[in-house]
Design a protein around this nucleic acid. Sequence first.
DNA 1: TTGTAGGCGTTATCAA
DNA 2: TTGATAACGCCTACAA
Lengths: 335, 335
Amino acid sequence: MTTAQRPTLEAVARRAGVSRATVSRVVNGSTTVAEPIRAAVRRAVTELGYVPNLAARSLVTQRTDSVALVMPEAATRVFSDDQYFPGIIRGAAQELEAAEKQLVLMLAGSPAGHERVERYTTGRHVDGVLFASLHGADPLPGRLARLGIPVVCSGRPLGGTPVPYVDVDHIGGVNRAVQHLLDSGRRRIATIAGPQDMVGGIERLTGYQAAITPAGLPEWVAYGDFTRESGAAATWQLLAAHPDLDAIFAASDLMAHAALRTLRATGRRVPDDVAVIGFDDIETAAYTDPPLSTVRQPIQEIGRRMTRQLLRLAAGESIEPALVLPTELILRDSA
Amino acid sequence: MTTAQRPTLEAVARRAGVSRATVSRVVNGSTTVAEPIRAAVRRAVTELGYVPNLAARSLVTQRTDSVALVMPEAATRVFSDDQYFPGIIRGAAQELEAAEKQLVLMLAGSPAGHERVERYTTGRHVDGVLFASLHGADPLPGRLARLGIPVVCSGRPLGGTPVPYVDVDHIGGVNRAVQHLLDSGRRRIATIAGPQDMVGGIERLTGYQAAITPAGLPEWVAYGDFTRESGAAATWQLLAAHPDLDAIFAASDLMAHAALRTLRATGRRVPDDVAVIGFDDIETAAYTDPPLSTVRQPIQEIGRRMTRQLLRLAAGESIEPALVLPTELILRDSA
DNA sequence: TTGTAGGCGTTATCAA
DNA sequence: TTGATAACGCCTACAA
């Protein structure tokens, strides 16, 4: 389907009886245009339905007015119901909207996807790059940073090159949670840890250890990948090894939810026999049976702050190398 | 931070000792280049780390190689844990990735956001537009279609202009669900309907009516907006009006989940006293108490199919005006 | 305050 | 098969 040519600056200029330059000035809000002319141009713009061609503008301004949000995750995790990625997306979208920039979403779960993202971002097709999460010592953020491309990560990058990031106080939050378990008399406290190639997984385990060890208690650890399935498996594992455990701290609410179910399946009552605390405070947490106590992290705020940092970076400002947001222990009925 | 200039076609051409045109041909895979020259150009590209400037390319090709995905939703709904939007996003992302196109995500919950989306999309900054949902008779899809901009919607558009869409068989799915309730002896069947400015909300209610009416039973309807809160409120309403109801069909799993909780709060047992069926089959559905029976819709597949249709449209092919995917009744323990 | 003119990096049309 | 060369639509010195 061939469509009517869209009007260009030139067309507007002709219609308004001025030069292209003047139209450009009006469109870009320059103050050095006389009011009557400005009005005439505005009218011409409206009549013709003129909209600037971003490609042309980008070509000369060297900006693209778009930002990439990269999610280096296997498909299954990105959009399960754990709300992490959606929360980041939403926070970023809000801030970018305010800044009139576009959000380009890139999934990079597979090696091919990761490579695609690398090509695209290093090719400077965006003004900056946000990483919604990171696995292992992914070299890409560092590489981009060294190329002078603005980057901000969610979670402290494990790679060598320092890259600005926004994270939450995992350790503090988990510490408070486990401390609460100790305070309420629990003494056989296990944990379902998250993936150990991610900072969140690592630090939440550290937080558990930091509370357990000083209390002279043994560490009982099983590993999951934040999903429900892995949480169920880990719970069975813990129960097999330590049938007498009296509390579980799970590094994600999804895993905690699975633990709740599994414990019930084995006839254990929560919190009477076993207390459970999760991490995240997803919406479902208030609706589990019993309602889940958890460590809340402000996911959407992470997305917002990352974006704000990135925009400052892209504007040439220098920014804090790290921003750490607080976590909060939410007590419901499971502990 | 000033960065080393990125290499241009010109630079590669000089390095390889050929003209810009030849480099362009090699980069774009033209077959009319002699092998030795092609090799030399490839080498120069690698050595210089050349990446084409998409803005420049777009300027001359008139394509942007990007597609907008618009979500005209209030922030609260887009990223609750109902997985609808994330599922659409993921399906679209997969297909776009395969087609080497970028996904530009646009939230349009507020009037300002909606207007922003309109400016951007009508400005032809993307090769096509996907609507993840629609409220009322939103004129935007029709307007874009008339401008010759490829558009595909999720859910039949209520506006006047016909726009290609992908949807699921709401009515059939709901019909089967209510029929199942009837078959198991329920006779006082209420429904929590979805928002009546959305096709999904409307048709799921129609499906309920289409099963209830022929059975000579009364329609008991309360309205929600697909969220848990609204589902809880609607359940209270229904119970107040019809304390003796023996089944509830809810137009979303989130609302069904809230119904489950509310029923329990009033001392009713599910499914003994009241049967409950939801719609969506979100991940949580298998984890509610009791596990939720529901009508499954293939959300991710909707996203994929929409995108494929859009790409065909953008390629100049003509496509089916509508694609309707099947739904499936999943029986668990709540009914 | 306004206009002229050059150039941003590609692709595409011709010639050679 | 390769190379000039002209667009593509816009911004921005610089000149008037």
